[in-house]
Write a protein that binds this DNA or RNA. Structure first.
Lengths: 222, 222
DNA sequence: ATCGATATGGAGGAATCTCCTCCGGTTGAC
DNA sequence: GTCAACCGGAGGAGATTCCTCCATATCGAT
């Protein structure tokens, strides 16, 4: 499905493990950068390190697989949004929120240095995703719902900003909720100029923010 | 100035080095997390590793100094914004943009785990920064310019989102410009509902984004 | 249920990275 | 000009990370 030239199909358990490794790798690369220890990835995937190496002979090929997986998921999100939403701005909104959900956006810039994005196969999958988004943007500008000075790059980079987990001791769940909330804020704008879309997610006060600091333990003194 | 109980004042060159180390530490912690190698920090500061250890006996005390420095700069920005701007929303806008400029916001959540933020001295400096901001938010809601469902936490976390350098091979300068541009987009909102503030910074197209990928060199094969 | 092909995990040596001190040489302040 | 303060980098100890090997477990077709 996501491997191009594989002779035998993988056994069911192997396929499951492969997917879990891919998912763990995506998260770990986002959190720790492209040099993250592979053992952390296999640990989080719930497999042994040997399984990771068997499936992906080196870091490079793991990264490549992560990127391809991310591009495919994103392309599917874009396709569905454009096809199923009634208007261009809703499609764009849905595309952005769903891309946060599939948690794929943040990993691509992280691996930009390490994977040849201009290689034919990758380029082709990329285009499947960018096409619909370019179309949404163009249509939404044409019908006057999207501000005309916003670019594809703005949208893409914004999604990356909101996709990356915030540093520090914040739970993954809160991180996700805040990302959607803040995306809503971006779409609506901070300044009041008329009716605004509802903003979901937790409304954190200053005290909530403070409460996130764990016990002030001075760790080990050495 | 930023050290509380220092017997002798540092010699001029030592003070310069200390400031450079602090600045480098801030950037490196933001980019690589709290476990970043100290040698990378001293290298970037243009000093030897021994100088870093002489000034900051351990990682903990370096982190503490970085946090205090960041809080002080942020507090000053907030104070000036509230004092010098004609209305609350301009003050808030200026506060957010200037905080990006002083490049201090992103480091605080990164070090939340490692520094005791509830300790008296730190708490006091924190309050000097949060006070004016809470005031701006309240005033801007009262005069109807800031949407009422935005919280202090939203503002703070948003600044962190925009302060963090994007992953991947993007120049620092472009990073900074985009941060301001996207902050403007946040303030104005993506959706058109009336007049909107001008958006500065580079308007990146899809091709610009692609052009950022360096030569596709397969690195070393090992 | 059986059996062979396929897949698994973790130990462990080698290589690399990071910490942090020591000390001969340099520089700023008076 | 003098000297106290400051500097940089070498380098040993310890911690991480890489990646292979092989005895055991599991899948799936019959």
């Amino acid at each position: 499905m996501q491997d191009t030239r594989e002779a035998r199909p993988l056994r069911a358990d192997a396929r499951r493990n492969r997917a879990q490794i891919l998912e763990a790798a995506r998260d770990v690369f986002v959190e720790q950068g492209p040099g993250a220890p592979l053992e952390e990835i296999s640990r989080r995937a719930g497999t042994g390190i040997a399984t990771l190496y068997r499936r992906f002979p080196d870091r490079q090929s793991l990264m490549r697989a992560v990127v391809i997986d991310a591009l495919e998921r994103t392309a599917e999100v874009a396709r569905a949004a454009l096809a199923e939403e009634p208007d261009a701005f809703s499609a764009l909104t849905r595309y952005m929120h769903r891309t946060l959900d599939v948690r794929t956006a943040a990993v691509i810039p992280t691996l930009l240095d390490e994977v040849a994005m201009d290689e034919a196969e990758i380029r082709q999958i990329t285009d499947q995703g960018t096409g619909p988004v370019l179309q949404m943007i163009e249509m939404a500008k044409a019908d006057g719902t999207l501000r005309p000075d916003v670019t594809f790059g703005d949208i893409g980079v914004m999604i990356v900003r909101f996709s990356r987990p915030l540093p520090g001791p914040m739970s993954r769940e809160l991180n996700d909720q805040l990302a959607h909330r803040h995306l809503d804020l971006l779409i609506g704008g901070l300044h009041v100029r008329g009716r605004q879309g509802a903003v979901g997610g937790p409304a954190m006060t200053l005290d909530d923010l403070r409460a996130m600091q764990p016990e002030s333990d001075p760790t080990r003194p050495d």
